[in-house]
Nucleic acid binder design. Structure first.
Lengths: 412, 412
DNA sequence: GCCAAATAATTCAATCGCTGAACAAATAGC
DNA sequence: GCTATTTGTTCAGCGATTGAATTATTTGGC
C-alpha cells in the first residue's frame, strides 16, 4: 500500500514548544484586533500559563510586542494586546522582469517598509549584469531596513519563467534566459549567505506564483483560495489554496498561457495551436486593437489601450471582448477542475478588469457546472505591476510566522 | 516558497504522543519490508525507548503486529519486524453507480478482505430504495468482516455526482439524483452510528475522487501524484498530490468532463459548447464508432467496442483516435496547470488505453511546455470498474493510519 | 472613598512523555 | 564456548504543559 502523508519528521520533545510558538504567533498574525494572552488561551485551548510562556519567548525574540491598551469593555484588569513586531525580522523581496527591477522590504505585520522600482529594458542585459544591478538595489534596501530597526531574515526573487528546485531559471522566454544558475550568481547579495533552517538564503520562484502570494498578503480578509492570473507578455497563474500556494508536483504549476482555448486555432510558439496566450496575451490584445507596438514609445501601449477602451473605441472594445472570452474559456477549465470561487485579474489585466470581467463571467456561468450553487467572483488585483516583489518579501515573512522557532534559534 | 503548514489546533501535552503514533505507524505502512523498532528509531530520529513505547501502544491497539523474523543479515540479536495488523480495524467501502452496487472491506494493510458487486439498473430505483439495498449488503459485509476478526472502523460511499460537505448528493445526473440527503437515509447502516473523532460515520464522496484513491492504494510504489480520469457516461477526474486527494475549495474539484476542448463545438447538456464529454464520453465514442446503444444488450457496447478495435475496425479506431485527441487536449490543460507527471486512465478508459494513449501523448507533447524536461506517463488503472468501492474503503483505512490516536481512544 | 466583583497575568508543584545511558537478550562468527 | 554485535527494555532525569492558587488591575456599587 502507499505511503501515508502523515507527519514525516518525528516529533521530539522540543518540537512541542516549537509548534506552540507557531500556533500562537499564527493566531496573533491572523487576528483582526490585538488579542490578549487570555484570548489566545481560550482560542487555542492552551493554558494561560503556557500562552504566557510562549508569548514571552516571542517578545524576547522581537517577533511580538505589546500594543497600547485596547478599548476596554467592562470590569476587570485590562488586557494587554499583542501585535506583530514592527522592528524585528523583515523579508526582502526582489523581482526581475522584462522592463524593470523591483526591490522591497516587508515587515512581519505585512507593511511595505521600503520599495524601489528601477526601470530598464533587461532583455539586452546579460543575466549576470542584471543580477549584479539587483544586488546593488538589495544593498540599499538592507541599509534602509537597518535604519528602520529591521533585520532582513531572508530574501525571495521572482522571475518571469520556470524555476527548478535548486533555484536555476530553466527558461524565461520573454527575458531570453535559459538555465541561469541564479543562486551562484547572487553570491554577493548582502543578507544571508548561509542556509538558515534548511532553507536556502535566496528562494527563486516564478513571478506569477509570487504575485499571487502578494495578493494574498494585500487582500487582508478575502477568501484564501483563489486563482491569480498575471496578464503580461506571457500569461501565468498562481493558485492559492487555503492561504497556501499550490506549486504542483515539480513546482511548475500555473502555465495557464498554453491552455488550448481554440483547439485548431492560431499556432503558438510553444508548438501547440489555439493557446490562450495567442488570444489574451498582451501582444495579441494590442494587435487586435490595432495598437502595433512599433509606432508607440515602449510601455505606453497598454495605457493607450485603456484610454481607447474608455473612449469607446470599437476596435479596442472588440479586442478586449475577444480576449475576455478566451480568458473565460481557460478560466472555466480551471474552475471546473479545481473548484475555486475567486479569480483575481492581476498584472496587466488589473486595469482592464471592467472590460474583461463581463465576457469572463459569461463563459464561466455557461461552462461551470457548479456556478449555479456558488457564483465565481472575478475582481482586479489589489497590488500593481510589481506585486511579485511584495509577494516575494511576504513569502519570507510568512515562513517566519509559520516557523518562528527557526528565527528564534538564530538570534539566540 | 511554501510556508510550512502551521498546526492549526494547539499542541497540547498529549498531542506529542498522538503525533508520534502517527509518525511511527506511517513509517510502518510505507515501508517495503517489515521494519524493526531500531530501524524506525533511526529513520524517525526518535529514541529507541520512545519507539518501543509507541509501538507497544500500537500493538495493544491492534494496529500493528510482530511479523515472523525477517531474513537475517549479520550478527546481533535478530530484529522483530513490524507489520500492519490484519485483524484490527478495517474500512467499509460502498459504491452506488448507474448499473451496480459494490461493497468491500479493506484491512489496514490494504488487502481487500471482502468484495461484493450487485448488478442492477439503479436509474429507475428511488434513492431510498437504492440505499436500503446498500444497507443490506453492508450488513453482510460487516458479518463477513467480523468472522475474519476485523472491526469496521468507518465507512465511505462513492456516488457518481457532486456531494457537499454534509454528505448530501447535490446532483448525480446519470443516476437522476438531486439533493439526496444520504446520511439521513443511511441511518440504519450497521457500523458506526455516532461521530468518531469529529468525522461522520459515513463519508460520502465523489466516485471519481474515490477511484483515484483506490488507484493510489493499488499502485504500490508508483508516484504519489497523478491525475486519474474515470471515463464513464460522464468523465470525472481525481487529483492526487503527494498521496493526498486534492478536493478543491469546496470539494467539487475534478469536473474535467466539461472542460472545453473545441470552444465552438457541439453543444453540451451543461449549457456550454465543445465540452470534453461530447467527444470522449462513453456515449460519444460509441456513437462515433457506429455502436448505437439501442441495438445491443445493455452494457455490452463497451466490450463490443474493444473487440472492434482489436479487429481493426476503421470506424472504431477513428472514434478512439478522436476521443483520445479530445482527451489529450483536456489533459494538456490540466498538466500545464498542475504540473503532474502521471495520468491514469481508469473506469471505462482502462481497457481502451492501447488506443487512447497515442493521441493523448501526442497532444501532451505538443501542448505542454515542460514535457520536454520531464515526460508525462499515461497508463491504465490497476483496478477495474468498481475501483471507487476499494478507494472508499481505503480512505477509511488511510484516515486511521494518519491519525491512529482516534482509533486507540475508541477501544480504550 | 472603600470594598466587592471581575478579568488578566503569573507562580508553582504535579504530571506526562521524551531522552540518554546502562542493561538484558539473542545470534553469528571464530 | 567466547566475543562482537545488534536489538529491545528499564530507569533516572528533564523539558514542557497543566491546573489551581495567587497576584495585579480595573469597574461598579454602596
Amino acid at each position: 500500500m502507499t505511503p501515508t502523508p502523515g507527519p514525516v519528521g518525528a516529533v521530539r520533545q522540543g518540537s512541542l514548544r516549537e509548534l506552540n510558538l507557531a500556533v500562537v504567533l499564527g493566531r496573533i498574525a491572523a487576528a483582526d484586533r490585538p488579542p490578549s494572552r487570555a484570548v489566545l488561551a481560550t482560542e487555542t485551548g492552551l493554558t494561560r500559563a503556557t500562552v504566557s510562556a510562549v508569548v514571552e519567548d516571542l517578545i524576547t525574540g522581537r517577533l511580538v510586542t505589546e500594543a497600547e491598551p485596547a478599548p476596554r469593555s467592562g470590569a476587570g484588569r485590562p488586557a494587554r494586546g499583542l501585535v506583530l513586531a514592527g522592528n524585528g525580522p523583515a523579508g526582502l523581496g526582489l523581482e526581475i522582469n522584462v522592463d524593470y527591477l523591483a526591490v522591497c522590504v516587508v515587515d512581519l505585520a505585512g507593511r511595505v517598509r521600503h520599495h524601489t522600482v528601477h526601470r530598464a529594458d533587461l532583455r539586452p542585459v546579460s543575466p549576470a549584469d542584471a543580477l549584479s544591478r539587483l544586488v546593488e538595489l538589495a544593498g540599499q534596501a538592507r541599509a534602509e531596513a537597518a535604519s528602520q530597526g529591521l533585520t532582513l531574515a531572508g530574501a525571495a526573487l521572482g522571475v518571469p519563467g520556470l524555476v527548478d528546485d535548486a533555484g536555476t531559471v530553466r527558461l524565461a522566454p520573454n527575458l531570453g534566459w535559459r538555465d541561469v544558475p541564479v543562486p551562484a550568481l547572487l553570491a554577493g547579495l548582502p543578507p544571508l549567505t548561509e542556509r538558515v533552517d534548511g532553507v536556502p538564503p535566496i528562494v527563486v520562484d516564478n513571478e506569477a506564483n509570487l504575485s499571487a502570494l502578494g495578493e494574498l498578503h494585500a487582500g487582508s480578509d478575502g477568501p484564501a483560495s483563489f486563482l491569480h492570473i498575471s496578464g503580461e507578455v506571457g500569461i501565468g497563474a498562481g493558485i492559492v489554496l487555503d492561504g497556501d500556494l499550490f506549486r504542483g508536483a515539480r513546482g511548475w504549476s500555473g502555465e495557464i498561457g498554453h491552455i488550448p482555448v481554440h483547439s485548431a486555432g492560431r499556432p503558438c510558439r510553444c508548438g501547440g495551436r489555439g493557446c490562450l496566450e495567442q488570444y489574451a496575451g498582451q501582444e495579441a490584445i494590442l494587435a487586435a486593437a490595432g495598437l502595433d507596438r512599433a509606432d508607440l514609445p515602449a510601455d505606453t501601449a497598454p495605457v493607450r489601450l485603456t484610454e481607447l477602451a474608455e473612449t469607446g473605441s470599437v476596435d479596442a472594445l472588440r479586442a478586449l471582448h475577444e480576449a475576455g472570452t478566451a480568458l473565460g474559456i481557460a478560466v472555466a477549465s480551471v474552475v471546473n477542475l479545481l473548484d475555486l470561487d475567486t479569480v483575481v485579474l492581476g498584472g496587466g489585466y488589473a486595469p482592464l478588469t471592467p472590460w474583461l470581467r463581463p465576457p469572463v463571467l459569461d463563459e464561466i456561468s455557461r461552462r461551470v457546472l457548479t456556478a449555479a450553487w456558488s457564483p465565481v467572483t472575478v475582481r482586479p488585483a489589489a497590488l500593481g505591476a510589481d506585486a511579485a516583489a511584495v509577494g516575494a518579501a511576504g513569502s519570507v515573512v510568512r515562513r517566519i510566522i509559520a516557523r518562528p522557532a527557526g528565527w528564534l534559534a538564530r538570534t539566540g
